[in-house]
Design a protein around this nucleic acid. Structure first.
Length: 425
RNA sequence: GGAGGGGUGGCUGAGUGGACGAAAGCACUGGUCUUGAAAACCAGCGAGGUUAACGCCUCCCAGGGUUCGAAUCCCUGCCCCUCCGCCA
């Protein structure tokens, strides 16, 4: 959520900044709500004051043994009037709150203009695009029966996967490698968290109330949802808390499955492991002092890159344009790995700085000293990395003409020394 | 799942209808004293909104209700604790 004070001061400036995203702020509705709120609040507080004064007099009179009847009469229908005004005030206040919760974050000045992912700005590339002396196949063809969609469709339906044998081990090895690097080398604390979260947690990180269609609700309980990303439980570690300044930055790494409805993507990316209802991800989350969040974003991008470099996978970094930016993000850098089977780069990491947007919803604050008033922290996160898509990248980039796949050196220890995977058709 | 007990400031904890945003202690901050520190003593010390300021309003888990007036009484929900049951 954006700062309501900023909204009151200069709503036009906010509307202008949001147009970078292609978001059309309804200034007229805002002004109507805000004016109504102000009037009702003033009126309500005046009435409350009157009531408090008389009530106090009644108390004194009663204590002194005086007749309180005249005073009680004097209060008259104050209570009734107050009731009416208060109800109206709460109604308007709720509407205003709903309005503000639906407004996305303001993009940083460095965010490129544009509407779709084609307008994203490439920042740099690393590694050479893999060359083959044969026509590379995509991961579905290479993995053969180890990628068992016949089973996953029977068990669950489309957009799920069953991995078998060595492929499942490789998948697990990737998770271990990433967690080890981020904990041992990058100083992150590893967390294990719930995969079912409540409404308040999803409100805090920004998935609700606007994007309820994207998350799975646990049917027996309308206040419980499957996590769409570890960002939700991990960022909510600090919801409604005040940390001391010495504790910042907090660095958390967490591996979880991610569950997504993918409701807006029917027919898109239906091949293989690219877009599923359930996939694994290792997530990096930082909670920082507001002065240091931009450095932290660079840090997260670099740390995610370390994994790709360790696996010797060619990739590029792009800065998302305004139209492609997530709801809560002020700036997002994606890392895209080269996929020979698709002949294009595909996202494996998305690193975002949310500034105080999530922190305000979450009331996540810090105190710079024992006497200082609490201030909002900044929150960031980045995939470090998406497991399924990295698995695809390894299969496709390391495939050989014979059909076997070489295991990148960094992963060999996690595969008990195995250097090649052989797949059956 | 059953029975009982409870949610009050950073923490402990008093408060059962009227001057209570809330005793007391701890912690913290400033001062006195001290060569310095500790101790002792004095003072300060929750959050949000609004105001140029004085001030005013709100907040004692959350939401409703009773009342001129609610931390206090009533209803609902959430959470925590103890015992029993079940269970990886």
């Amino acid at each position: 959520m954006l700062d309501p004070r900023l909204f009151r001061q200069d709503p036009e400036a906010i509307a202008g900044a949001l147009s970078i995203r292609g978001y059309d702020l309804d200034l007229e509705s805002y002004r109507d709500l805000e004016n109504a709120r102000r009037e009702l609040q003033t009126e309500m507080e005046t009435l409350q004051h009157e009531r408090n004064v008389v009530s106090r007099e009644i108390g004194v009179a009663k204590r002194d043994g005086l007749d309180i009847e005249p005073l009680v009469v004097a209060v008259g229908d104050l209570g009734l009037r107050l009731d009416v005004v208060r109800k109206e005030f709460h109604k308007v206040q709720d509407e205003l709150q709903d309005f503000l919760l639906d407004v996305p974050n303001i993009p940083d000045d460095s965010v490129p203009a544009g509407e779709t992912d084609e307008d994203n700005r490439e920042l740099y590339r690393w590694g050479d695009v893999t060359e083959f002396d044969f026509k590379p196949r995509d991961h579905v063809d290479v993995a053969g029966s180890s990628l068992d969609f016949e089973s996953s469709v029977r068990i669950s339906g489309s957009r799920f996967s069953v991995l078998r044998g060595p492929l499942a081990r490789l998948h697990r090895g990737l998770i271990q490698l990433m967690l080890d690097v981020h904990t041992d080398e990058h100083g992150y604390e590893e967390l294990y968290v719930p995969y079912i979260v409540n409404r308040a947690s999803l409100m805090a990180t920004g998935q609700l109330p606007k994007f309820e269609d994207d998350v799975f609700m646990v049917r027996s309980d309308t206040d419980s949802f499957l996590i769409p990303t570890a960002e939700v439980p991990v960022t909510n570690m600090v919801r409604d808390t005040i940390v001391s300044i010495e504790e910042l930055p907090l660095r958390y790494v967490c591996h979880t499955p991610c569950f997504r409805r993918e409701s807006g993507s029917h027919g898109k990316d239906t091949r293989g492991l690219i877009r599923l209802h359930q996939f694994e991800k290792v997530e990096l989350v930082q909670i920082t002092h507001p002065d240091h969040s931009w450095e932290a974003l660079d840090e997260i991008v670099n740390q995610a890159e370390v994994i790709l470099k360790r696996l010797e996978l060619p990739f590029r970094a792009v800065s998302l344009c305004g139209g492609d930016l997530g709801f809560a993000s002020a700036k997002t850098i994606d890392l895209e790995v080269w996929l020979p089977g698709f002949n294009r780069y595909r996202e494996v990491s998305s690193c975002s700085n949310f500034l105080d947007f999530q922190a305000r919803r979450a009331q996540a604050r810090f105190r710079s000293g024992p006497q200082a008033r609490p201030e909002l922290v900044h929150t960031l996160n980045g995939s470090g990395l998406a497991i399924g898509r990295v698995l695809i990248a390894i299969i496709e980039n390391y495939q050989e003409a014979s059909g076997r796949v070489r295991i990148p050196e960094a992963l060999v220890p996690y595969m008990h020394g195995v250097q090649f995977l052989e797949f059956e058709d």
